[in-house]
Write a protein that binds this DNA or RNA. Structure first.
Lengths: 358, 358
DNA sequence: CTGAAAGCGCTAACAG
DNA sequence: CTGTTAGCGCTTTCAG
């Protein structure tokens, strides 16, 4: 048990017969130390199992840190509004620590907007970055540049995948999408009392996002495939931005098919589907979607939505920023990835998720 | 946006025309300040929206804090072992902050053990206490004494109820038990495809604990009562410590009844029931219980247990200690109570809850 | 290459 | 009642 609470830099300086300045130099590899001194200091360091007092460390280093957040415009999508709430909370949380979190928003509909913003962001030379790789190709350019100038970055809403492995994010925060799809399947399976048609609805999604969505769908199908029977037949429907409103398109689809269960792998798609089910009086169709958006909660309460899987974007952002701060301020390394729990939300437990948990 | 990053105590001293000492005194209500000075300082404090730099604060206050934890012996029950893990994590987390968390364990089976321990604990005069009111009557004595000597305390595994309102815990951490019972009912209801007998099993519980359990049962029954039909009839069974093992008793009960669904409101009761169901080949009976104990997970995977509701004892302890530390170190007041989310655990999502989340 | 010394913002002991 | 001052442990000049 390290009683090393009490060894100070001063102590090890004395033990090594040098000054605190020298000790600090070897600790931080700042050079300008004779190999002799270095050897001695390092020996004592090892022997005493010294670990610096992070509090004093960050007080002493009166440095200001800039963290840049690059996320979609919260006004375009309630999911990102929740995410933004996490950022705002982090801003408050670290206000007095000389951490400046500045927010850059890009347009969810225009990938160019993302590219434009990374230019501006990089010019400000932040000490760390939090982002979500919505537009994957553009994000890759971003990663390359960040890696190049050695700015640490953390990704939210992401899962470790082979493409990302080529780059060096400090940490990746998200959920296991495949497993998430399996949870959705399980929930439909549990609540469905008779065989029938199922559907996966892809609504309004930039193709770039499709990595997640495909994985969710795969998990969903995979779950049912394991049973090897054909009680359930699964179709996939994709609705793209057209002249006709999504609601109209979805409504038509729902009217034509006799669906027993629907899985919508996106948060905003969820309430769009619920609306359509409502309009066509098909509320009894089992519907599983994502996230505690206002309208999703409404339809959950009403019974149109049966389950929501919570991706907790607010927590993801907050957690990402905490990792970044700990990294900058206290040199505490975050995990390489953080897979959040797959919360199942129902009519009976949703309120317990609505309190602002830290 | 507060550019108050940079207002130091020194600044507000200058602005108020007093010394830093005085400012510090009014900030911490240490008295010995003329009402005139106090007024001025408070005005500036308000105007500048001053908030102290917690880092400097904890460096400056070279005070050592003692926090005493009083929880059941973790070796007696895996639930409390999880709880203990939270305590250990907190110990690590605040190691370098001069916070000394010492653990007192009492015997779950002997209420006298609790009483004995509170004596010893009080003699050490800790700065704060974390406990769980397992033995309610004995706990009340404890609360009274803590209130008397003004030691702040936080309760875990508890819900705000009229009896506790007479005392002054700093915060109460737990779940809404009534709602928890309703979640259990909902889960059974969703997964049950035909009417039938249901049961609530009370296993091996000290009567003192029964407040929670009664509330869970009430929520459970209440859910079904709202439907007003009699598709489901609910019986209550209680198993007390006797010559015969619980397993035997439960087994007998299960064999005699034709139960479609069972709700067990305790974590250890859950696997005991699952064992009995296994032995009597009644795995198809829907079983809802509590918590990610090793054996519960085993039976969940095997399909004997259908759902677990996660009470996250580890998180409760950790959170309670964080509140305490923030209270002591930074004077940040915790909420008066913190109701945690009612996590639903299934075969498909349990792994996502097993990672050690902070 | 090295040591001395001045802070970082706050707390607390000590004269007055 | 009030101001002054010496730290907390570490970083970072700045002479030498």
């Amino acid at each position: 048990m390290g009683k090393n609470q009490n060894i100070r830099i001063k102590d090890i300086a004395r033990m090594a017969g040098v000054s605190v300045g020298t000790v600090d130099r070897v600790i931080h590899d700042r050079g300008n130390v004779s190999s002799e001194s270095e050897r001695k200091v390092k020996a004592i360091l090892k022997k005493t199992n010294y670990s610096p007092n992070p509090i004093a460390q960050s007080l002493g280093a009166k440095k200001e840190y800039q963290i840049s957040v690059m996320l979609p415009n919260p006004e375009q999508d309630e999911y990102w509004e929740l995410s933004n709430k996490g950022v705002l909370q982090a801003q408050r949380e670290w206000k007095s620590y000389n951490i400046d979190i500045n927010i850059n928003n890009f347009d969810l509909e225009r990938s160019e907007s993302f590219s434009e913003n990374i230019q501006k962001l990089l010019e400000t030379k932040p000490h760390a970055v939090l982002t979500a790789p919505i537009f994957f190709d553009e994000s890759i350019t971003f990663f390359e540049k960040l890696d190049e100038v050695d700015i640490p970055y953390i990704l939210v809403n992401t899962e470790l995948n082979p493409q990302i492995k080529k780059y060096n994010p400090l940490c990746i925060i998200g959920q296991n999408h495949h497993q998430s799809g399996r949870v959705a399947a399980e929930l439909i399976h549990i609540s469905l009392h008779e065989p029938g048609q199922l559907a996966v609805m892809h609504i309004h999604e930039n193709v770039e996002n499709s990595i997640h969505l495909k994985e969710k769908e795969e998990g969903f199908r995979n779950y049912f495939a394991e049973f090897g029977n054909d009680d359930f037949e699964i179709s996939t429907f994709s609705f793209l931005d057209e002249k006709r409103s999504f609601e109209e398109q979805i409504g038509e689809c729902i009217a034509q098919q006799d669906l027993k269960g629907i899985f919508v792998p996106t948060s905003s798609g969820t309430y769009l589907t619920a609306r359509a089910l409502g309009k066509h009086h098909k509320q009894q169709t089992k519907l599983v979607g994502y996230d505690l958006l206002e309208e999703n909660i409404h339809f959950l309460k009403a019974g149109t939505i049966d389950f929501l899987i919570n991706q907790d974007p607010r927590h993801q952002a907050l957690q990402g920023l905490r990792y970044l701060v700990n990294h900058l301020l206290l040199k505490i390394p975050p995990p390489t990835d953080d897979l959040l729990p797959l919360d199942i939300i129902t009519r009976q437990n949703y309120t317990s998720f609505l309190n602002n948990h830290s």
